[in-house]
């Protein structure tokens, strides 16, 4: 993450605050900073979303393409993640500066979305073994204020909710070749079910305690964090992947705490996100979105 310098005294203050369950900005260990969401703001994408979490700012665009399915999974479509750390966020991301961080985020997401129980790849299938949808989920990090994994996964899920796949009909041509006709009508489309799409929750260990939504300063005070990816199914939270980050080591008991906390928070966030996405859709309507974007 973008490096923030802190003195030993500042770190001590943060550490003690975490112990007291009262962080520097008054939050408890389980609180998130305020978030701001908008979908449908990139017109060249099939689906898009922007999520701000304090001053972490993520823009996601989903683009679609017809592709040939992987022969090992003929009935599944494809997902590809791409993360770009814009130099707008910090000069350290200039050129290839952000590529390590980007790679880490891509792997986290791939890991979380890998299971078909987390993402229903069958819905992307067009003709088994021959044609399927491939979705490119392109993530642009515009500003970094800590807790990138969570923000990125929330934005990605929102963008998938917003994604409209044109309706495709198949016609049989001679010699058994199937031709695909993609509807031109922008209102004739299918949506992607996002109920089980996973969210990532970063559970950060500072001293003897764990917390969620670390700020950039808190991340510096932590030696190790666990990223928990949570997928909901029928109202229950499931673990769809996890990994450690930060280069330190964690005791097994702490790990259990992290998983429990991560799952509980993940469930809460999922419900919250779904509610706000539905609310936005109701207010904006499906036809003419009024984009707020960056102008306000």
């Amino acid at each position: 993450m973008a490096y923030v310098a802190l003195s030993e005294a500042e770190k001590t203050y943060i550490l003690h605050g975490v112990e007291d369950d009262f962080r520097c900005d008054g939050r408890s260990r389980r609180d998130y900073r305020p978030m701001d969401l908008e979908t449908g703001l990139v017109s060249n994408a099939s689906g898009s979303a922007r999520l701000r979490l304090a001053n972490t700012d993520i823009l996601v665009g989903v683009k679609t393409e017809i592709d040939v399915p992987n022969p090992l999974t003929p009935e599944f479509g494809k997902l590809e993640f791409f993360v770009d750390c814009s130099a707008n966020a910090t000069p350290e991301f200039e050129g290839r500066g952000g590529s390590d961080l980007a790679q880490e985020l891509i792997l986290s997401l791939q890991n979380a979305y890998e299971s078909p129980l987390a993402f229903n790849y069958r819905t992307l299938c067009l003709i088994p073994g021959q044609q399927c949808w491939k979705l490119y989920i392109d993530i642009l990090i515009l500003e970094c204020g800590g807790n990138l994994h969570d923000a990125v996964s929330l934005a990605a899920k929102a963008a998938l909710f917003n994604t409209k796949l044109p309706r495709v009909t198949a016609t049989m041509l001679d010699a058994g070749i199937t031709d695909l006709i993609i509807s031109d009508n922008p209102y004739d489309c299918t949506r992607i079910g996002i109920e089980t799409v996973p969210l990532l929750v970063t559970v950060c260990k500072i001293g003897d305690y764990v917390l969620v939504d670390p700020s950039a300063e808190e991340e510096v005070c932590s030696t190790v964090s666990m990223v928990v990816s949570v997928s909901m199914r029928n109202g229950q939270a499931f673990l769809s992947g996890t990994h450690l980050t930060g280069g330190g080591a964690m005791h097994r008991d702490t790990m259990r705490n992290c998983l429990e906390l991560g799952l509980a928070i993940g469930e809460h966030l999922d419900r919250l996100l779904t509610k706000m996405l539905n609310l936005e859709q109701q207010r904006v309507g499906l036809k003419r979105p009024q984009i707020v974007g960056f102008l306000k």
């Binding site: 389980r30 609180d31 978030m35 701001d36 928070i265 919250l272 207010r283």
Partner: peptide
């Protein structure tokens, strides 16, 4: 486990 988390819509963003 209680948690405070809120997502606002950009539509409701405050105009400073």
């Amino acid at each position: 486990m209680s948690t405070n988390a809120a997502i606002d819509l950009a539509l409701d963003r405050v105009d400073w």
